[in-house]
């Protein structure tokens, strides 16, 4: 078990190191976030809370697609085989899931900051909203990491990711949007914790499925 943990940590370190050396994903996505939000700001100024909320989650979705899509592309086939032989498929997918979740948490925080800077701040409960955007970012990154693995196998990255991912992600986005509404008004919604638990449950389900199903994707 300790050995497994060491494998995963090493793989995450590898991804992190690649990221720091190339600085490609991070700045690429950062620029993407900033310019998208700037376009929104130019076209609508400071929107209503409901619109703000909807825009925030939609932009999170696109940020996630862009940040995560690359995660199975930067390594070529020979290197993948190498990882597979030294670490095993399960460690590999777990390291990708954790790395992308961390990346997405950072991105959520940054885009929240740019949102508040440009589009105004309608949030009443900031800490809760940050927590929710972390939870949402983790959920999105889990789903898209797994779909990126599928799409990488099908060799048609971007288009397939959108076709497969967007219908699957709708229920989660609906849940997130609905929970997030609670941060904009002082009235507490009924069934809020139920929805948060459902979201956490879904995240756990995705991780379990990824661990079970990923080895089948890898067998070539």
């Amino acid at each position: 078990m300790a050995n497994k943990g060491a494998h995963i940590i090493t793989l995450i370190k590898k991804d992190l190191l690649l990221e720091i050396r190339q600085q490609y994903t991070f700045y690429g996505v950062l620029l993407y976030v900033a310019s998208t939000i700037f376009v929104v700001y130019l076209s609508m100024g400071e929107p209503e809370p409901a619109v703000w909320n909807a825009l925030f989650w939609v932009i999170q979705l696109f940020v996630c697609v862009n940040a995560v899509a690359k995660s199975f592309l930067q390594d070529n086939k020979g290197r993948m085989l190498y990882y597979y032989s030294i670490a095993g498929a399960r460690d590999f997918i777990l390291s990708k899931l954790i790395f992308n979740a961390l990346l997405m948490m950072l991105m959520s925080l940054l885009s929240l900051f740019i949102f508040m800077l440009l589009l105004g701040n309608p949030i009443l409960y900031l800490v809760q909203f940050i927590g929710l955007s972390f939870l949402g970012g983790i959920g999105l990154s889990f789903i898209f990491t797994f779909l990126a693995a599928i799409a990488a196998k099908a060799q048609q990255q971007a288009a397939l990711m959108a076709i497969m991912g967007f219908p699957i992600i709708i229920p989660q986005l609906l849940l997130l949007g609905r929970i997030a509404k609670a941060s904009f008004s002082p009235i507490l919604q009924a069934g809020l914790w139920q929805m948060v638990l459902l979201l956490v449950g879904l995240d756990i389900l995705i991780v379990l499925l990824a661990i079970i199903l990923f080895p089948f994707l890898w067998k070539d």
Binding site: F146, M164, L202, L205, L209, F216
Partner: peptide, 13 residues
């Protein structure tokens, strides 16, 4: 693989 994943994502919701 996608079939299993999509089913598990869809039906709880």
């Amino acid at each position: 693989v996608y079939n299993v994943f999509a089913f598990a994502m869809l039906f709880p919701t």
